[in-house]
């Protein structure tokens, strides 16, 4: 067994803006690591638009529903005191004219109401918000969440997905786009973050927001410029000025776009792409080694 095959590392692939190629980078990197004999997992945390399965075509071994613990009132025990309504910051439980009403879709599952109920009249039951799927795509372990349509809150589902992450693998997390709660939930705790962007004004604007967020989370990170030849050089200039490593620049290629549109893994259909992704994998591993040495040096 080579030393590489035992690498344990969590890499989150994120972007400020959607559609820059996050899923492409995450799935193809997973394929590259797996082909090197590394124990690899791909984790789709983009639970509002989970697309990794299109490219990895996993065999799902198990799937289960996941939810938020929400209050259920025992009417026999409840005396209508209203303490539960007072602690709830989300209007998920209210007491009106001595009657207790619960609204599972607003509940964050903090457990405050059952904690404060003096009559012990509150039991917690699961309100389903989505499903978690676990399976295999070749050698790659596949884990994904899928938010139920009409559900507003994805972070609890992302947490449920992350619970399934194996501790002995190189883990590729496909993060939701943006910089708000779902993205943060996905990226938190990652050893390294790959930010994917495009060389356009929109791409640059959204990259800046993502960079600020990842800095706020104190994660080491680098940038991949996808379709690097379609726009201008502002993204490159920005990265240089901010001393952000540019891990890879992947040119636009019409045939690649077509492969993507058919749901193919690029490293399987194109030799050029395999070279790009192999290089990217090496750089990510090197960056991780560097940041973990500097971490242990600073301790």
């Amino acid at each position: 067994m080579s030393s590489e095959s035992r690498i344990v590392m969590t890499i989150a692939v994120a972007s400020g803006k959607g559609g820059t190629g996050k899923t492409t980078i995450a799935t193809n990197l997973a394929a590259v690591f797996a082909s090197r004999g590394c124990t690899t997992a791909y984790v789709d945390c983009d639970v509002e638009a989970p697309n990794g399965h299109i490219f990895l075509k996993p065999k799902i071994a198990q799937s289960w529903t996941s939810g938020v613990p929400t209050p259920k009132i025992d009417a026999e025990k409840c005396d209508g005191c209203g303490e539960c309504g007072k602690i709830c910051q989300f209007s998920a439980i209210v007491v009106i004219k001595g009657k207790v009403l619960t609204f599972p879709d607003l509940c964050h599952g903090c457990g405050g109401c059952s904690l404060v109920c003096p009559m012990h009249a509150i039991e917690e039951v699961e309100h389903e918000i989505g499903t978690v799927e676990v399976g295999l795509s070749g050698e790659i372990k596949y884990i994904a969440g899928r938010l139920r349509i009409g559900e507003a809150m994805s972070p609890p589902l992302i947490r449920a997905v992350k619970l399934e992450i194996p501790s002995d693998s190189i883990v590729l997390i496909d993060s939701p786009p943006g910089t708000s709660c779902p993205m943060i939930e996905a990226v938190r705790g990652a050893d390294y973050v790959v930010l994917v962007t495009e060389p356009t004004p929109f791409g640059l604007n959204d990259l800046k927001l993502a960079v600020e967020t990842v800095r706020e989370l104190s994660r080491p990170f680098g940038v991949v410029i996808n379709q690097c030849d379609i726009g201008d050089s502002q993204v490159e200039a920005y990265c240089r000025k901010e001393e952000i490593p540019i891990l890879e620049q992947i040119p636009h290629d019409r045939s690649v776009a077509e492969d993507y549109s058919r749901g193919h893994l690029l490293v399987e259909s194109s030799k050029d792409m395999r070279a790009y992704f192999n290089r990217l994998a090496d750089k990510v591993l090197a960056a991780n080694r560097e940041s973990s040495t500097s971490k242990s040096a600073s301790l």
Binding site: G18, G19, T23, E48, A49, N51, I54, L147, I149, G150, E151, A152, M153, S154, P176, P177, G178, S180, P182, Y260, S261, R262, G263
Partner: peptide, 28 residues
Amino acid sequence: SPGTGCPVISSITGADLVLVVTEPTMSG
């Protein structure tokens, strides 16, 4: 907003018309 969660739901409720812009890919 993109996705199907909280911000999108808040964007569309009560609107007169929604236009969904998609692309001809499996993900789209």
